[in-house]
Design a protein around this nucleic acid. Sequence first.
DNA 1: AACCATGGTGGAATCGTTTCCATGAGTGGT
DNA 2: ACCACTCATGGAAACGATTCCACCATGGTT
Lengths: 334, 334
Amino acid sequence: MSGPVQRRITIKEVAEAAGVGVATVSRVLSGGSASAETREKVLAAAARLDYRPSALGRNLRRQRTGGIGLLVPDITDSFYARLTDGVLSCARSYGEPVTVGVTGDDPEREAELIGTLIEQSMDRLISVPSGDGEMWAPALRAGLNVVFADRRVRADVPSVVPDDRAGVLTAVEYLAGLGHRKIAYLGRHGQSQRVAAFTAAIASLGLPADRDLVVHARSSRDSAYAAAAGLLQHRPDVTAVIAGGNVLGEAAVLAARELDVRIPRDVSLIMFDDVPWAELCSPPLTVIAQPAQDIGYRAAELVLRQGRRPPTVTLPTKLVVRASCGPKVSLPRR
Amino acid sequence: MSGPVQRRITIKEVAEAAGVGVATVSRVLSGGSASAETREKVLAAAARLDYRPSALGRNLRRQRTGGIGLLVPDITDSFYARLTDGVLSCARSYGEPVTVGVTGDDPEREAELIGTLIEQSMDRLISVPSGDGEMWAPALRAGLNVVFADRRVRADVPSVVPDDRAGVLTAVEYLAGLGHRKIAYLGRHGQSQRVAAFTAAIASLGLPADRDLVVHARSSRDSAYAAAAGLLQHRPDVTAVIAGGNVLGEAAVLAARELDVRIPRDVSLIMFDDVPWAELCSPPLTVIAQPAQDIGYRAAELVLRQGRRPPTVTLPTKLVVRASCGPKVSLPRR
DNA sequence: AACCATGGTGGAATCGTTTCCATGAGTGGT
DNA sequence: ACCACTCATGGAAACGATTCCACCATGGTT
């Protein structure tokens, strides 16, 4: 390949070049006290040699690692990509590296990734938790500094979540206002908060309760499609569906098209999470916008600023009306 | 918060618990030779104490870090998200952590991120390079093990790229076959390979060459929209455009809609990169599909397997015909 | 003049691991 | 019975930083 690799230069060499001891170099570089003269010499030598302190050495001694870990179910999902972007954006301003892992919503894989992170002596972790709260006990006992994003599965861990309750309520109210009574929720594994909010909203508006009106999919696109198609096929009486995420919404549109049910004439659709293509879709999708990037950013702030950590911060959602919802048809479809 | 944090247990404690020396523990755990009996004792003690070797200690001693760094222009872009997913997927099977950074296609930010990575003693890096090849000289001299993905800016660095030349040629031929002669390329900063392929394809088919027919945008959505709108507005004579990425394609559809130019009646559109919503779009978009995930996976393989590294691996693209291209209209629009 | 406080400075210990090297035990061959 | 050889084993030296602590010079106070 190219020329000879040059060995990394250490604090010792800087000390030698500056004619001082290693302790002094360390002190100067980390803002400790030193005379103006020595400071000058050290800084000059460090700059001349292009010295970069080894994070390995520092972290080993300090017994803590700077970086932060991030665990998301699926980086391919626009929502989590934006969340990740928020985390990276905040971390960059602190100069902290971020190690990302994909859990696929599988608690086992999540546990495995947490193990890897602990091995790296990462002590700060942001996670969109896949399993229930209990599996986090060992990690917390190990001194890991955890913040949950998007989902909240333990009360004793700071969390940054969208306002699911308000979002769902807004969606249901909007649909009910259009005359819909049989409204289905097409959800993703691990959205217990939102499902609870959904059934509560249904109840509060006096709509008929029906356990079968909430359908769950695993986190793959195939599973989402199967769930959507199943719902549309087996329940011709539902006239409106709320999709709990952008891949669910995508699946719903695809399935509807395949089964020749028209949106919004036959069924109305509201999708959680506003994505760029929602406007491009035919028809343009009415959505509940979620501040994905903000969620990530705030979570990163929380995990980086060690100080007093509020238990939960809830970020607002917003209904964006486009063209995928219409008034209820007088006759059930099919 | 919760109970008392338990200190991390070290190899020393395992040695003590097993009644052997630290050297023996290390040897057993890394597959060295040891008697069956001691091996048994050590393994038992390690399991009982739930011992996890500290990556910090190991890496410091070994003078190399396991993890791999990944630099992408924009994690929010589906293409790079899928590429990232490929890298993560491969890295996971090796148990290697991946540190991700977002460059925003800004060479300065890229250099800064490389600096952070070097500080962490990362010695393996996958990058979608933003700048030209020269800025990589210091990193290479520092012994960094670099693989380029998606773009190839140095011949002496292994690269995994889509087959831009074939992809562009396929697109141009398809468009020319429909009768189009004024074809524009809407590109992104840093796609010199593809632009060259475009002008070559135009020339080889005997179409009129025109430097103004390639338009560049920076990597933001706003910039992409401005470029697309500008092209559509100022050049009513172009009847087909090739968008060099999914955010460019999205911008083109949006701009066309805003300016009331119909796809495909007024202009035909081919988009690089197949994304789930391309099918949902109105009209469904004809695309050149790129194996984004594979690119990431292969790049990770290359950077993890130190052995003989082929200079460049090129992955095929594929034309997926949908409904965004039509025959050339006889009269120029407007 | 003796003493103490102050503040800059460098040597050495430390973090947790791997790996070199010396030691000792056991074995087979002459 | 002795030698040569293998093999398992543990002590100790790295790796590169931070930080404790002892040291010294200076200057101000009693």
